[in-house]
């Protein structure tokens, strides 16, 4: 087992770890972190697999990963802006499993002021 293969396996594990956190956590900021970890895992896998087994290094996957890093930060920035906009509109920065009505029942005092404020805004 070469060290390239080890990095490839690390990449696969990072991807799965990120996927787990993406599904598990409700807070959007944490989902964004999870997607970034998944992306890093994919990049690591791509470059490590390309490095394995050949003498001369292959610049094409390297160029693709540099492109990918820039695209990832663009997507992250846009996602963060959308999250802040959602917080502004709904008062929460989470994607809950439950419907909004159930949510306000579960959280007795917190979103009630937000909800009333929003209702007032809409009315």
């Amino acid at each position: 087992m070469s060290s390239d293969l080890f990095y490839a396996l690390t990449g696969a594990s990072l991807f799965t770890l990120g996927l787990y956190a993406l599904i598990k956590h409700a807070h959007i900021l944490r989902k964004i972190l999870a997607i970034n970890v998944m992306g890093s895992g994919v990049f690591l896998l791509l470059v490590a697999l390309a490095a394995g087994g050949q003498q001369a290094f292959d610049p094409v996957p390297h160029a693709m990963v540099i492109t990918g890093i820039v695209v990832a930060i663009s997507a992250t920035a846009l996602a963060l802006a959308l999250m802040l906009r959602l917080r502004e509109a709904s008062g929460l920065a989470v994607l809950p499993d439950t419907s909004p009505e159930e949510l306000s029942e579960q959280l007795p005092e917190a979103p009630s002021d937000v909800a009333s404020k929003n209702n007032g805004k809409n009315a």
């Binding site: 390239d4 690591l44 470059v47 890093i69």
Partner: peptide
Amino acid sequence: RLDAPDIALAEAAIG
């Protein structure tokens, strides 16, 4: 470690 200094620079600065 993976002989990719270009990516290392991009990752440190951007990532």
